[in-house]
Design a protein around this nucleic acid. Sequence first.
DNA 1: CTTCGTGCAAAACCTTTGCATTAAA
DNA 2: TTTAATGCAAAGGTTTTGCACGAAG
Lengths: 160, 160
Amino acid sequence: MSELPTVEVAVSPVDKFREFLATKSLRLTQERRQVAEEVFSDHEHFDAEQLAQRLKSVSRATVYRTLTLMDDGGLLRKVARRANGKAVYEHDYGYPEHDHLICNQCGTLIEFPAVDVTQIVDEVAVQQGFRVEGHRLEVYGVCSECLRPRQRRHRKLDQI
Amino acid sequence: MSELPTVEVAVSPVDKFREFLATKSLRLTQERRQVAEEVFSDHEHFDAEQLAQRLKSVSRATVYRTLTLMDDGGLLRKVARRANGKAVYEHDYGYPEHDHLICNQCGTLIEFPAVDVTQIVDEVAVQQGFRVEGHRLEVYGVCSECLRPRQRRHRKLDQI
DNA sequence: CTTCGTGCAAAACCTTTGCATTAAA
DNA sequence: TTTAATGCAAAGGTTTTGCACGAAG
C-alpha cells in the first residue's frame, strides 16, 4: 500500500478532493468544500456527529454523504468504530500509514508507524495467496497517562 | 495474552460459563445453556442474527444478552463488524490467539496465528508506556479463491 | 419468598434514502 | 438548461430496554 513513512503532498486536500470529484463528474459544492476544509483544519480523529455539530450550515445527510465520498477518494479512512457504534474517521492523504493504540479508559488514540505490521501482513498474505488491499490494527489497553496512579487522568468518556 | 498456540481446556465451555456466572451470582438458565451449547457446537464465526435463527426457542433479546455475558466471561469475543453493521463473534476459550484476513469479495474470514503481531505490539507498547490488554488486526483484500479468474467463486454475499 | 431472567414490543441509535427544491456547469 | 446536490423527514437495520410475567434457589 505504501512503503516509506514519507509522503509528498503535491496539492491541498481540497484540490485533491476536487480532482477526485472531477473524475466522477461530480461537483465541488459549497457544502462539500466546507466539510473538506473543516475536516482538514486539524489532525484529530472525529465522527460524523462531531463534524456535523461543527458544521451547522451543512445538513447531517450531506455530512454523511460527503464523508463517504472523501473515503472513496482516498482523503479519509474509517479507523474504527467507537463503543457507541459511531464510525471514526481520520486523514488518509499526505499522511503515512500507521495503526493505533486505543486506551480503554480515556479513549485516546495513539498512532504508531505500520511498517513492521505491514511486513508481517504481506508474508502471511503470500502464504495464503491473498491479495492485500489494506489492514487495520487496533491495540486495546491503558495509556501511560491513565496508568499514572492517583493523579489527574483523562476523562473524555464518550470520546474515543 | 497467550504465548503458545497450544491452550489447555480444563472444563467444557458450558462449565466455564457456569463458573463465570457464579462469580456474579447469575444463573445458568435453560436459555443460556442452549445459547452456549449452540455457539460451541462448531468453530465458525457467527452474528447474533444467525444464532437467533438457529435457536428458535430463545428470544432475540436473550440471545443478545447472553452473547454479551459470554463476551464478558471470556468465552467469546467480537471479531469485527460486517459491512451490514452486524457484529461478528468467535470463540475465545480454548482457542489460540489469531487474527484475520477478510475477503472483500466473498466475505470469508481466514485465520492466522497472532504471535508475530503480538511481538510488535508489545514493543510499541513498551515504548509508549502502554499496557496492552489485547489487539485486533484485520487485513482486507481478496482471497485466493476469489482471485482465481473466471471460475466458480464464493458467493456468500451478506455472510462474511 | 425473593431475586433474577425471559419475552414482547417499543425505543434507541447511527446511517441511509426518497423526494421536491435549489444550485452547479 | 440539464444534471447533480441539498435538506428534510422518514425509513432502515441492529441492538438495547421497560415492564409484567415466570422461574430458580
